[in-house]
Design a protein around this nucleic acid. Sequence first.
DNA 1: TCTGGGGTCCTAGGACCC
DNA 2: TCTGGGGTCCTAGGACCC
Length: 451
Amino acid sequence: MRGDPSVLHVDLDAFFAAVEQRDKPSLRGKPVVVGGIGVRGVVSTASYEARKYGVRSAMSTAEARSRCPHAAYLAPRFEAYRQSSQMVMAEMRALSPLVEPLSLDEAFIDLAASGLSGLTVDDVEAIARDLKESIRKVSGGLTASVGAGTSKLIAKIASDLDKPDGVVVVPAGTEAEFLAPMQVTVIPGVGPATAQRLSMAGVRTVADLQQLDEDELVRQIGSAHGTSLHRLAVAADDRPVVSDRETKSVSVEDTFETDIIDRSLLVAIADRMSLRVSERLQKAQLSGRTVTVKTRMHDFTTHTRSSTLAGPTDDSRVIARVARRLLEESEVGGGIRLLGVGVSSLADWIQDDLFTEDEHADDPVEVIELPARPRDQLGFHPGQDVAHPDYGRGWVWGSGRGRVTVRFETADTPPGPVRTFAIDDPALTKVRIIGADADEEPETDQNVSNE
DNA sequence: TCTGGGGTCCTAGGACCC
DNA sequence: TCTGGGGTCCTAGGACCC
């Protein structure tokens, strides 16, 4: 372990809400809640004004509304957050080349990597205050809380102690006593389930944990977790700050406003999710071998089914074909509230010849209008691709009683707005998306064949 | 007023191989 | 003839984080 508090943890205060207040002055000083605004939405971030009313992250938006009805409820604008995040991260990299982002609003910085050594508490505090000032300037007024210590663990916990807009530096050599009086839940990785098990063993504070035998801890919470927690409790943390962490999986999921039972609708949604996963893989120049379909039932039980291909793919049709099969094997039962498609076992290459033998393999996804035909011959089915001159590309969510409900896809808000049209509305045209079809291909995945 | 979406890491059992 | 043992891969589920 290092001898000076040269690991920093920077945490932007109420980040999403702060960006909204920055961009819309009328929201400043007022409660702002950013998150899902639908009936099943949850809160991502509440401004400090909203927190006074008990609004918290991960709370259902419905509960937030009852606690603070007069707050502004906003859907997240991830593009704006990403932009601000990049500017802030750039300020950090100007301070040290070794920066490890944990999310849009959090990062570790290793000051030792910039050649600084023998830093005193006062040195680090001055550096932290300078950084906060440059973050404020470059981001248009965002504040950050900074923690510093001899390890990631200490820096992370310290940054939480004086929010918002604070700086806490823990002197080298005082780590174990710094942690001792705190609840075990301050240690990252100790959530409700672990805390419950620990409390059954009489452990509530880190001091309790420091006295617990390692073997006993491993018996209570398992080998990997127990061993690492035993070390963290005495502040023995030598995990390095790592700047380039590899992506391990890419996934898309959606919780529906009402549970879905219709399998053909689920297939249509899975196809689209496969397309979005594929687009994101391609953008990141990644491909993967394992396709996973996730379903969450009406009672919130969650199931995953996965299948591993012989070689990696980023092809939407391959992903969709596997996803369809996995979905077929999944129970729909009393309705599904969430569906997800993901790809893991990633590689940064693609096994061309194995997967792109299809004649349309290299076709870009494009929209082709079908020849005009009388409406009554067309019909609409769930998942049918359509286009509208005012709203762009969309697809049929449902139809009946002379009306058809269409979900439009926009770049910024992936699920898109839902609109209803008369079934004979001439502005609504049926289209076909080349490339999104899950055409028949030879079965290429080995493990499927011995199921 | 029920519980988002994007991830990471770990566990455990079975298949399979040497 | 009462049956090893280790390693790796795959699948499913769960805890946890922001």
